[in-house]
Nucleic acid binder design. Structure first.
Length: 192
DNA sequence: CCGGTGATGCCCT
DNA sequence: GGGCATCACCGGT
């Protein structure tokens, strides 16, 4: 996982994570997806959960890189982040969308839909598809049952850099990154 | 296709 | 008690 350079800043790690693979094992089978959309968050940034300091909820964000920070929001949804940066500094990369590669029928079962385009094109949708919830908060992503592995590399011209979704503070920052022309991106062509 | 809105529970002020 | 790193559904176009 060294090649992902997760000790880097959140914005750099967010770009590095594009194309890497998320691999999930459940009793029902294995699922694999390629990360196609990410957002960076760090403690200098008012939109970040780590802004304003370490709390019980955000503790994992301040821990070692390569672990999963999973939070619960809007009373019903989970979202997955990959912790990055130096331990002690609260930063992470939100995984906003993946492209389903393997175990697609299982993802459809967990999502209770047959619409492949709508399976994993959003942070809460991909958690539901991969059966990810708070039980995996703090999990080391080099280990089963949820692994992160390096995958395809993308050139800068293949990566779109734009504003983050669903925030109000520091909303001008261009801290969202996605793979150009990939049909599993949650919100393509955001006007800046 | 698009914008508006209700669901629903936890955390922090 | 307010606000939320969201989603599905609804109605008008």
């Amino acid at each position: 996982m060294e090649s992902l350079d997760l000790l880097a800043s959140a914005t750099k790690a967010a770009k590095n994570l594009l194309g890497s693979l998320l691999i999930r094992a459940t009793p029902q089978g294995i699922m694999v997806g390629k990360i196609v959309e990410t957002e960076a968050y760090d403690q200098s940034d008012a939109a970040s959960h780590s802004f304003g300091g370490r709390t019980a909820r955000t503790d994992v964000m301040f821990g070692p890189p390569g672990h999963a920070y999973i939070y619960f929001t809007y009373g019903m949804h989970y979202c997955l982040n990959v912790v990055c940066g130096q331990p002690g500094y609260g930063s992470a990369v939100l995984i906003r969308a993946i492209e389903p590669l393997e175990g697609i029928q299982l993802m459809k079962d967990y999502r209770q839909t047959n619409d492949e385009r709508n399976l994993t094109n959003g942070p809460a949708k991909l958690c539901q598809a991969l059966m990810i919830d708070k039980q995996l908060n703090g999990h080391d992503l080099s280990k089963w049952p949820l692994k992160l592995e390096p995958g395809a590399k993308f050139k800068p011209r293949q990566i779109v850099k734009t504003t983050r979704i669903g925030i109000t503070k520091d909303s001008h920052l261009l801290w969202r990154f996605y793979i150009k022309d990939n049909s599993f991106v949650s919100v393509p062509n955001t006007p800046i």
